[in-house]
Each structure stands twice: as structure tokens, then as C-alpha cells.
Write a protein that binds this DNA or RNA. Structure first.
Length: 509
RNA sequence: GGUCGGGUGGCCGAGUGGCUAGGCAGAGCUCUGCAAAAGCUCCUACAGCGGUUCGAAUCCGCUCUCGACCUCCA
């Protein structure tokens, strides 16, 4: 039975509208997201889609669905453009670094996993590798040939778009019109490899004959070669999710030709569309510009987390990056700049620490004559908070609104602390539970992990207590030079000391 | 040239017909040995020009402008 907890609406690229989400085989939901090509270190461009679809899978699970989230690892390499025409990306890097291609793939796969983990992304249910599914891809290509939608040419196999278009529409997803594609001006840029082998220039490769220098190669009915770019997603998506499955996600840059081709291949092979909903996250820019290696503004995630990049003034905590990403709706472009990141990191600190304090708070019993917030329409009322949080997510995953609700909670929380408004213990317990559900389970921010310092080590705790006691003695005797000396020295050692009414607090960093 | 998506206050970023989004920065204040942190208050925008409407950031048209993609780059 499909759980009914309000109506989730998702923007479907295919219809260009927000549609109510209806699972094809409730309570199961199949979701396929195009994964990374592991030919280099994980970068900013990887952060956004995987945070976005992580939140989607978490929310679907919260709604009661059993989600199978499949995200591939592309490790068979694809052609590079520019000067390296015709040479496999992975093979090229491997040669440069004098490694086996698979060694390189392994290194960057691990780096990718680590970055995803730091960003708070849960691993997908299945993470199939393209190189581990060569037989499935070959099999699919054979079906396409048999059905007359593909042809072999000089050891390569191409998708016959003309044959396909005679039976199915093509271009609906991306809004392309084939006849304009090839004819279009400004399109003479690339002399595509193997263009002469094709019957029509718009045909795309399913299997590519391997040149001698191409290291990554597999045996096939058409000779040594490697699969075309699009076929892996089609083959693996269908293998693990069946066609049609519910959701196919990825970056907007994949819309054409990648997803359009996937759609054609699967449709031609199985006579049904690969999926019901196509979702695309918008792109990331750096200081308003596309991120690109040639533009010199490429930011790897490690650089971000460690602050080692000329464009960055400081290191950014991975979870503050997650926060930054979720502060924008996934269909808007998101501009990374040092200023925006710094602002967001600061806001995140207040947000997370405030909420941590909130969920640890034990409200005093209601005072007579004061109306509890639960009756006043305040967001501190658990049902009201939940209704608003759910409405935000149901509207095509509007995470910025949900984050803003967190700030609203903190605002009202002040009034609770100062006794201006009262809450009932029962409602407070409910509210804390809901906050954990939405902010932790769904958005992925850990609220119970306050006092990172407290768990560091009892030895440090003890030492700090001693130091702060000594400092307090200095303060009591108005020996400001001494107390400031201690505070400054600790500061230089990376320990912040702050005084308030109750005494001194300290924290790392 | 084509297709698609944008242009919101100093910055980031929600919002699709009337009701203060939110954050950061800035200003003032509270607290305070100093500092920091925290809290309170203030800061009311919607690229331009027309149009529709009682009323538009929100709908329509035009202009300017930015971005993505345009077949083997994920």
C-alpha cells in the first residue's frame, strides 16, 4: 500500500511541470542516479546532485517507501575532447600516472566514497560498476541490433536514430529537434571520432572499436572494444530496477545527449520508457562562472574541506557545504563563492548549535494563566512544524524553506527560554521528535552530536577544567593580565574560551 | 544560430496576483574587566519598457543580460 502522508510533488523534466509523485509499484520505489566517472578526485560538481538525491531518497523512505537507490560508478572511461581526441579519459590518466586503469579507478572510487560520507550522504542501495556489467551491455546491444535499431560498422555499433524515430518520438526529454541538431550553426566544432562509420551523423555509439592505444578493452561479438557512453546506465538501470522504474536523476548537463539517448535505447530495447520521472539538478557555478578545468576555477572537495584553494580564504566543514547546497532549491543554479560559503558556514553554526540546544532543552512546567504555544499557532507546536516542514518538502524538495523553519524555531525558542511563551512537556517531546526527523533523518544534519569536545578525551576534559579553574582564580582577583594570557595562549593552541554569566566555556576551532 | 533555464535588497537565496521568507554583512542596543559568544531592534528589494488587472516581483509582450546544453565530456 502506498503510504499517504500528503502529496509529494516533483518536477518532471519530461513534462516540465511539477507532478504528484505516484509510485509505480508501491511501497517500492526505484531510483537511478547517474554516478561519477572516477577518473579524478571528487569535486564540487559531485556534491550537489548526490546531496540532492540523498535527501530525496531519505524523504521517500520517511514517507514509508522502500527505496532502491542505484547509483553507478563509471569506470570504463569515455573519450576526452579537446586535444586528447580519441583517447580514453581513464586510460590517459592511468598512463600519466603509470598505474593500471583499475588501480586509478579504485583510488578515485575510494576518494569519492569518502567525500560522500563526509558530506553526510548515505550510500546508495546498489552501486554498480560499468566495468562489471559489460555482458549486460553487450546483451542489450545485441537486442537492439536484432530489433533493427542498431547496426555494426567496422567493429563499432551505432544506434540507428532514423529507425528509432520511425517508431518512437525522440527529443521530448531535452526538447531537441533532430533535424536542427546537425544542421545547427556553431556545431562544426568537433570532428567526432568514427563519424564516417555512421550512417547518419546523429547516430550515437553503443559499442566502440578500441584503438591500439586504448587500454581499457573487452571482448565482444564485434571485436575488442568498449561500451558507448550511454549504454551502461540503460543496462544497469534495467537490470536492478526493471523498466520502467520510478525516478531517474542526474545533473542538467546530462539531459542531452546522455539521458535522451538512454531513453531511446531502453525504449527501443524494452518497448517501454526507462522511468516515470526524470529529475535534473541545476549546475554549480564558481563566482558566477561555469566550473571548468580550463577556466582555472575547478574546486575539488578536498580543497574545500581543507581550505587549500586560491579562491578560498578558509576551510569549510563538509556539513556546512551540505547546508550551503540545501539552502538553495536543487533546480536553481548555485553559485559558490568564498563570501557566500563563509556566510553560510556562519549561519550553519548558529543553526545547528541552536537546534542542538533546543532538542536538549527541558521546558519548565507551564505557568498558570499562560497559554501554551501549542495552542497559539506557534511553530513550536509539533503539528504545525510538521505541516510546514512537510509542505516545503512536498513542493519539489524545497529544502531552503525547511532550513528557514529551523531559524524560526530558534527565534521562538528564545521566547520559551525567557518565559514569554510556554510549552507543554508533551508537545515539546513531540516537537523534538519531529525536528530530529526532518533535520536529521531527512536533511542529514546530526543534532545529537553536540559537545564534540566532550567526547574527545577525559584527559583533555580534566586538563581544561584545571586550566579554566586557575584562570577563574585570576579573574576573581582581577588579575586580568593573567587571565587574558591564558585565554590567548589557549586560543593560539586552537581552543576558544568564552566567558559568560555561568562561567567559562571552551571549544575547539 | 538553436533548445532550455535564470535575472529578487551590499551578498547568498525562498516566494507565482493582494498578507514581513530566511541567512550573511551593516547600524544601534543589552550583557560585559576586556574579548568572544548570545540576544533584542533597525535595514522592505524584485533587470528595463509597455500591457492585462481594483491590485503584479508574481500573468502577457518586447528589450537588455547571465548561464547550461547542442552527439560519443560526466
Amino acid at each position: 500500500m502506498a503510504p499517504d502522508k500528503g502529496a509529494l510533488h516533483l518536477y518532471n523534466t519530461l513534462s516540465r511541470t511539477k507532478e504528484p509523485f505516484v509510485a509505480l509499484n508501491a511501497p517500492h520505489v526505484g531510483m537511478y542516479v547517474c554516478g561519477p566517472t572516477v577518473y579524478g578526485p571528487p569535486h564540487l560538481g559531485h556534491a550537489r546532485p548526490y546531496v540532492t538525491f540523498d535527501v530525496l531518497s531519505r524523504y521517500l523512505r520517511h514517507l514509508g517507501y522502500q527505496v532502491r537507490y542505484v547509483r553507478n560508478i563509471t569506470d570504463v572511461g569515455h573519450l576526452v575532447d579537446d586535444a586528447d581526441e580519441g583517447e580514453d579519459k581513464i586510460a590517459r590518466r592511468a598512463r600519466l600516472e603509470k598505474l593500471e586503469p583499475m588501480e586509478l579507478v579504485q583510488r578515485y572510487t575510494l576518494a569519492f566514497h569518502k567525500a560522500m560520507d563526509l558530506l553526510g550522504n548515505q550510500p546508495p542501495s546498489i552501486e554498480p560498476r560499468a566495468s562489471g556489467h559489460i555482458p549486460e551491455q553487450i546483451e542489450m546491444i545485441e537486442v537492439l541490433i536484432r530489433k533493427g535499431f542498431a547496426y555494426e560498422s567496422n567493429g563499432s555499433v551505432y544506434f540507428d536514430l532514423e529507425a528509432y524515430r520511425a517508431k518512437y518520438p525522440y527529443g521530448d526529454l531535452s526538447g531537441r529537434v533532430v533535424d536542427e541538431l546537425v544542421a545547427g550553426a556553431g556545431n562544426e566544432r568537433r570532428a567526432l571520432a568514427g563519424q564516417s562509420e555512421k550512417r547518419k551523423p546523429e547516430d550515437f555509439a553503443l559499442w566502440k572499436n578500441a584503438e591500439p592505444q586504448h587500454i581499457m578493452r573487452w571482448n565482444s561479438p564485434w571485436g575488442l572494444g568498449f561500451p558507448g557512453w550511454h549504454i551502461e546506465c540503460s543496462a544497469m538501470g534495467v537490470k536492478y530496477l526493471d523498466a520502467p522504474f520510478d525516478i531517474h536523476g542526474g545533473g542538467m548537463d546530462l539531459l542531452f545527449p546522455h539521458h535522451e539517448s538512454e531513453m531511446a535505447q531502453t525504449t527501443a530495447c524494452h518497448d517501454c520508457a526507462p522511468c516515470r520521472y526524470w529529475m535534473h539538478n541545476n549546475m554549480v557555478t564558481i563566482n558566477g562562472q561555469k566550473m571548468g578545468k580550463s577556466l582555472g576555477n575547478f574546486i575539488n572537495l578536498d580543497d574545500l574541506f581543507e581550505g587549500t584553494h586560491p579562491l578560498l580564504s578558509q576551510a569549510y566543514d563538509p556539513m556546512s557545504i551540505r547546508f550551503f547546497i540545501l539552502q538553495a532549491q536543487y533546480r536553481s543554479t548555485l553559485d559558490f563563492s568564498d563570501g557566500a560559503l563563509a556566510a553560510s558556514a556562519k549561519g550553519y553554526k548558529r543553526w545547528i548549535q541552536g537546534l542542538q540546544e533546543l532538542i536538549a532543552y527541558k521546558p519548565a512546567p507551564s505557568m498558570a494563566g499562560q497559554e501554551p504555544a501549542v495552542n497559539s499557532g506557534s511553530i513550536l507546536s509539533a503539528p504545525i512544524f510538521e505541516a510546514k516542514a512537510q509542505a516545503a518538502l512536498n513542493d519539489d524538495l524545497n529544502t531552503p524553506i525547511l532550513i528557514a523553519l529551523g531559524y524560526e524555531l530558534l527565534n521562538e525558542f528564545q521566547s520559551v527560554k525567557s518565559g514569554k511563551i510556554t510549552v507543554t512537556a508533551a508537545n515539546w517531546t513531540d516537537l523534538v521528535g519531529k525536528i530530529k526527523v526532518y533535520m536529521t533523518d531527512i536533511l542529514g544534519f546530526n543534532l545529537s552530536d553536540s559537545g564534540k569536545e566532550a567526547s574527545l578525551s577525559p584527559a583533555l576534559e580534566g586538563a581544561m577544567k584545571l586550566i579554566l579553574d586557575l584562570r577563574q582564580q585570576a579573574k576573581d582577583s582581577k588579575n586580568w593580565a593573567q587571565s587574558d594570557l591564558i585565554r590567548n595562549a589557549l586560543n593560539e593552541a586552537g581552543i576558544k574560551v568564552m566567558d559568560d554569566k555561568e562561567g567559562s566555556r571552551w571549544s575547539l576551532g
